[in-house]
Amino acid sequence: MNTPRLFTVTDRRDEITATVTLELQPLDDQPLPVARPGQFNMLYSFGAGEVPISLSGSINASDSVRSADRYTHTLRAVGKTTEALARLQVGDQLGVRGPFGRGWPMDQLAGKKVVVIAGGLGLAPLKPLLEALLADITHYGHVQLFYGGKRPEELLYPESLIHWSEKIEVQLSVDQAGPDWRGHVGVITQLLASAEMDPDNTLAVICGPEIMMRFTIQALQKQGLPDTALYLSMERNMHCAVGHCGHCQWGPHFICKDGPVFCYADIAPWFFQREL
């Protein structure tokens, strides 16, 4: 397992509750490996530990292209390591290993209608994908975003959502809302059930809590999308990120090197298996 590379925080942004976005730059002058949307890095906070965190898009909604010399990560403080990472300020140093894993199938999205479905913080790994699609929208054609969250104020990247909704169809759904909320109250599967889709020419990319992805897949199958058209990002315990530690095994798959993004057709036999 490689030693982490030394990075510093160049920008930081508080997002929703306990959630921050960090922009990171290496402190050496070596080139930065290209991170493809859907890949992840291992972030090490001194003395606290290391966690896998997906690459997210640019830190400012107005940036149309990610800077090639930075990595951006959105993370939520839910444990010792993520709490330490969330406390990092601009100028603080940390270790980074990566990028690792197979990302979203960008090549296969070209020329297709793309349905992007995110739940909760699952929007973060999809943000670089959305930015890539929007930067080259003529190449990708029709893009829809369905995004579900608990409450309106718990939806990630509100400025980006507004920005995106000027270019693509954005449908937001929350479990609960106050009377001022003009978006959908209910569940994302309901939006998917009533959405107009072209099942023969659409690819769906999905990221969110596993239970939400299960329901989403069923809703998309009802819409007639074949299993080969569904892509989702999986999560399991991970220590090494390079297929050696064994923790992220899921049936025959290693989430770290075979995923985290999988085509549903390849994992369908395992997806509904419990305690796998």
């Binding site: 090490y44 003395g47 606290a48 530990g49 290391e50 923790h247």
Partner: peptide
Amino acid sequence: FCSAVEDTTDLTGEHAERWQQWD
């Protein structure tokens, strides 16, 4: 072949180590 990593620090809080061991 499975292994785990453990990150440790000393009492001064200035030194940390990463150990890998069979899991």
